[in-house]
């Protein structure tokens, strides 16, 4: 069953305040030249139907709770792929007053794709690796870090 599931992982892409460079490359990867659709990957905006969360950007203060919410709305099992230098600890935006210095500590990450901006080959590689990790995951809920009670109540997972 797990192998069949891995034939078509759907992606939700969320930009948490990066420069757009990574997002352009994701669009290019979806295009005919690089064509990640041959691995069954489709970019679908709906987190409730998606398996892979592809995050770019240094996580600004205003995007932080949105990112957590998107992550919480995704069904288990799920994989988080962090793309780009600024997602890995802030990059050029490290220690600015309105960023969270990267995704670490907001949601648990499975695959890191380095580079500013990463090459498309690296993106494809990272996503394939994400699928491999995803195959071995179960439907158990992952540990949630630092969510405010208000947010958890809003999504209805407070008593889980």
């Amino acid at each position: 069953m797990n192998d069949l599931r891995a034939k078509s992982p759907w992606i939700t892409h969320y930009n948490t305040g990066g420069c757009n460079g990574c997002d352009i490359e994701i669009l290019a990867a979806l295009g005919p030249k690089f064509d990640i659709e041959r691995f069954g990957m489709l970019n679908r905006g709906n987190p409730k139907q998606s398996d892979i969360l592809l995050v770019t950007g240094p996580v600004t203060l205003r995007c932080r709770d949105v990112l957590r919410r998107v992550w919480l709305e995704m069904p288990e099992p799920k994989v988080v792929v962090a793309m780009g230098s600024c997602t890995h600890g802030g990059g050029v935006f490290r220690h600015l007053y309105h960023t969270e210095n990267g995704i670490d500590g907001i949601v648990p990450v499975d695959v890191w794709i380095p580079g500013c901006t990463p090459r498309i080959e690296a993106i494809i590689d990272g996503l394939i690796e994400g699928v491999e990790i995803w195959k071995n995951k179960t439907k158990e809920k992952e540990y949630m870090v630092g969510h405010s009670e208000k947010l958890l109540e809003k999504i209805g997972v407070l008593n889980d």
Binding site: T60, R62, C63, V92, F93, H95, L96, H98, T99
Partner: peptide
Amino acid sequence: GYVHRGIEQAAVTKFKFNNVQF
């Protein structure tokens, strides 16, 4: 305002003038 990072402040505090373009 979702993408506000504070670049205008960083350009006058954290970077030398010959690195600001990056």
